[in-house]
Amino acid sequence: MTKQELFERLSTILQETFDTDPVKIVPEARLYEDLDIDSIDAVDMIVRLRSLLGKRLQPDSFKSVRTLQDVIDALHGLLEEQSA
């Protein structure tokens, strides 16, 4: 999956789960400050992402995540790891 595809999937998840305004969904958006995603929401997001990755996702993978781009990079890294 390319990074662009990942971004689109994330965008759908954000809109469906949290009713996030699509205008705000840009790669550089900060999860907490700009998108109003708190630590409880992050757990919900990780649950939704599990189906995308097809395996259990450790919340630790997202410890240093601040922006949407960070999430995309982390996911992309995990997917690469899987296919390798």
Binding site: E16, F18, D19, I40, D41, D44
Partner: peptide
């Protein structure tokens, strides 16, 4: 329709 949204 969902918990996250209901909480909001």
């Amino acid at each position: 329709g969902g918990e996250a949204l209901a909480a909001r």
